[in-house]
Amino acid sequence: MLFINYPKCSTCQKAKKWLDAHQVTYTDRHIVEKNPTYEELKEWHQRSGLPLKRFFNTSGMLYKEMQLKDKLPAMSEEEQLQLLATNGMLVKRPLIVKEDAVLTGFKEAEWEEKLL
């Protein structure tokens, strides 16, 4: 299982503590040092069944600076995936990727259901 996070993010820190407390084994990946590629994002989006907007870090400074709230609706899925692949700070985190699930953000109930 892949745990993609930004170590300075308090939600990511909370999620990591949760994984460790529940003895869930994972591979840690720093989202800025190793940004998800276009191919990875495309595959994860398809496997997740989630709307693509859920992969965007809508509360992030970069998202707001780029005024993506207004721009995303006019962009194709392809353009949105390409944009996400340019900068890890645009991607919602933490991100869990495993064989049968892709989870964005940290929602304890959802993680309990899918990871335990």
Score class of each variant (00 low, 15 high):
4 I>A: 06
5 N>R: 11
5 N>W: 08
6 Y>D: 13
6 Y>G: 06
7 P>T: 06
8 K>A: 14
9 C>A: 04
10 S>T: 15
11 T>R: 04
12 C>Q: 05
13 Q>F: 04
14 K>M: 01
17 K>I: 00
18 W>N: 00
19 L>M: 04
21 A>Y: 00
22 H>K: 01
23 Q>A: 07
25 T>Y: 05
27 T>Y: 06
27 T>G: 07
28 D>S: 14
31 I>N: 02
32 V>Q: 13
34 K>M: 11
35 N>D: 03
35 N>C: 15
37 T>A: 10
39 E>T: 10
40 E>C: 07
41 L>A: 02
42 K>Y: 06
43 E>Q: 14
44 W>Q: 07
45 H>K: 14
45 H>Y: 15
48 S>A: 13
50 L>G: 02
50 L>R: 09
51 P>A: 12
52 L>T: 12
53 K>A: 15
53 K>E: 11
55 F>C: 02
57 N>K: 08
60 G>I: 11
61 M>D: 12
62 L>P: 05
63 Y>K: 12
66 M>V: 03
68 L>H: 02
69 K>Y: 15
70 D>F: 08
71 K>V: 05
73 P>C: 09
75 M>D: 04
75 M>K: 08
75 M>F: 06
76 S>M: 08
77 E>S: 10
77 E>L: 05
79 E>D: 14
79 E>R: 06
82 Q>D: 12
85 A>N: 08
85 A>I: 07
87 N>V: 08
89 M>E: 09
89 M>C: 07
90 L>N: 04
90 L>C: 09
91 V>L: 13
91 V>R: 06
92 K>N: 15
94 P>D: 04
95 L>F: 01
95 L>W: 06
97 V>N: 03
98 K>Y: 02
99 E>M: 03
100 D>A: 13
100 D>W: 05
101 A>H: 10
101 A>C: 07
103 L>R: 03
103 L>W: 03
104 T>M: 12
105 G>Y: 08
108 E>L: 00
111 W>M: 01
